[in-house]
Structures are given as C-alpha cells and as structure tokens.
C-alpha cells in the first residue's frame, strides 16, 4: 500500500485534533471556572489554568444549595433503581420473545416495536397528572417505574439472547425438572452478561441525565435530582459562576471517571443500542 503524501496526512491530523480540542474545551473550561474566585472569573484576558478557590466555591455551592449531596444521592438512587429494574424486566421479556413460541407472539412483538415510535412529549401532561393522582410527586419511583420494562430494552436483549443462548441448553434443563423462571435466572442470565452491561450503561446514563421528567414530577428541593437542582441555582446566584461550575463539574465527574476507564465499552454499548433500533 502506498502511503498518502505527508501534507495530506498532516492536514487530516490537524483537522481531527482541532475538532477534539473544541469538543473537550468546554469541560476543561468548566473545571477552570470551578477553581477560580468570583472576581477572577470576570477578567481579561481569562485564566486558562486552575485557580485555588475550589474550597471557597464549594462552600458557596453548599450555602446556595444545602441539599447538594442529597440531590446527588437522589440521582444515584434513581439511576441504580432504573438500571436494576430495567435489566430484570427487559431480560425477562427479551428471553420470552427470543426463546419461546407462543400464540400471538409476532403480533405482540410488532405492537411493542410500534410503541417506540411514540414521542415522549406526547404523554408529558398526563404523566404529571397521573403522578399526582398516585401521590408519586417528589417520589423517585415516578422517574423509574414507568419505563422499567422499556420496549427498547426488551428488543435489545431479545436480539442478544437469540444469538447467545443455545435452545438445547434450555431443553436439557427442562428435562432435569428446572422451572421456567429458574432456567431464566440460573442459565440465561449468566450467559447474557455482556448484553446486560450494554443495556445497563445506556439506562444508567439516560437516567442520570434525565431533566424534563424530573422537572415535571420533582417539586421540592429535597427530592430534586442533580439536573433539576443545578438548574434551580441558575436564577438564584447568577453571579456566582464558580460555585455553579463546581456543582456542574461534580455532577459530570462520575460519568467522566467511568468513561475514562471504559470508553470503548460505553461507545460500543450506545452504538449497539442504535444499530439494533434500525
């Protein structure tokens, strides 16, 4: 293979690197501002390196938003519950669609796929009304129960199970007197761990970043998840950008750390999720 001429390669690397810098810069800038004193933020030329006021900004953040860690915990709790329930119900449904033949299976499957076409905004008004009827306003379950058996997740795992689990194995277990649920729990689940990881990553990130749903059903500060809590700072302390950026940085940090260690896996998970939707 002939290599391309040097100027062309250089131009390509320059272009790719420029886009990478533009993409990463806002995160870098966020960490810079999070460590600068309020007076230092409004300066020309701007600081391009970290300051020493991280601790002060932290105190300002806690003064403005005393519930910060509570909100962080709410986000973690909702994301974990969403992930666990989604993994359970979607793998169960995906297992049934992949491994059983039953009456109306194709029709039921088509119906489920069709529900993915419904834009979420269509149900937002009744969603709020129903949650207040149920008394779920300010309750974490309002955020994860409605979507815990998602059509997308069942579809994703159905494809995975159909490819990864041999039917003979299930028949052998049946002859040994295994109940259908035990086959699922003891044989199928261990075989589909990579598929579960894929769906788990997509679900966790989706829940962690959910804003509109949380904005609609979470009304008190103690119940806020991080996106809603950070948003509530906006009107209050518009001048104290250092504190707001520190809170924002802390909200991104968990995702960032996990991404640094598992970026391949995470990108593959999202790509797999999209590929299967086609």
């Amino acid at each position: 293979m002939r290599r391309r001429p040097l100027p062309g390669r250089l131009l390509m690397y320059l272009l790719l690197s420029l886009v990478a810098v533009v993409t990463v810069f806002p995160f870098y800038w966020m960490f810079i501002l999070a460590t600068q004193a309020p007076a230092e933020i409004f300066r020309t030329p701007p600081h391009l390196w970290f300051g020493r006021s991280g601790a002060e900004n932290y105190h300002a953040l806690i003064r403005a938003l005393p519930t910060f860690w509570r909100n962080m915990w709410n986000s973690i709790y909702v994301a974990i519950m969403a992930t666990l329930t989604t993994l359970f119900f979607c793998s169960l449904g995906g297992y049934a669609f992949a491994m059983y033949d039953f009456k109306y299976k194709n029709q039921l499957f088509a119906l489920m796929i069709a529900t993915m076409m419904i834009p979420p905004l269509l149900g937002i008004v009744p969603y709020y009304i129903m949650m207040s009827w149920l008394g779920w306003i300010d309750k974490p379950r309002a955020l994860y129960v409605p979507s815990m058996a998602s059509a997308f997740g069942i579809f994703l795992l159905r494809q995975y199970i159909a490819a990864a689990v041999p039917r003979e194995l299930l028949d052998a277990a049946r002859i040994d007197g295994c109940s259908e649920f035990r086959i699922y729990w003891n044989i199928v689940l261990p075989l589909i761990r990579p598929g579960l990881a894929t769906l788990g990553i997509v679900t966790f990130v989706g829940s962690w970043n959910n804003f509109l749903g949380a904005l609609v059903v979470l009304r008190s500060r103690e119940a806020y998840t991080l996106p809603v809590a950070l948003r509530s700072l906006q009107g209050l302390y518009t001048t104290d950008w250092g504190a707001i950026m520190l809170g924002t940085a802390l909200s991104i940090l968990p995702i960032l750390v996990v991404f640094l260690f598992a970026s391949r896996r995470i990108i593959a998970a999202f790509a797999a999720g999209a590929g299967l939707k086609q």
Binding site: L16, S17, V19, A20, T23, V24, P26, F27, W29, M30, L33, I41, V205, W208, N209, F211, L226, P227, V228, L230, R231, Q234, W241, I244, M245, T248, S251, I252, I255, L256, F259, S263, R264, I266, I267, F270
Partner: peptide, 23 residues
C-alpha cells in the same frame, strides 16, 4: 479521537448548557 467526540453525548444537557451559559 472518537472518544473525545463522543463524550458530550453522554453528559447531561443541563450541565453542558450551564457551562455554555458561561462561555
């Protein structure tokens, strides 16, 4: 390269909108 291009996609829209608010 692809990891740095991809990362914004999995960060919260609220967080990045706040950052861009300062930018």
């Amino acid at each position: 390269y692809s990891a740095s291009y991809f990362f914004p996609y999995i960060t919260s829209t609220v967080a990045i909108s706040l950052v861009f608010g300062t930018i």
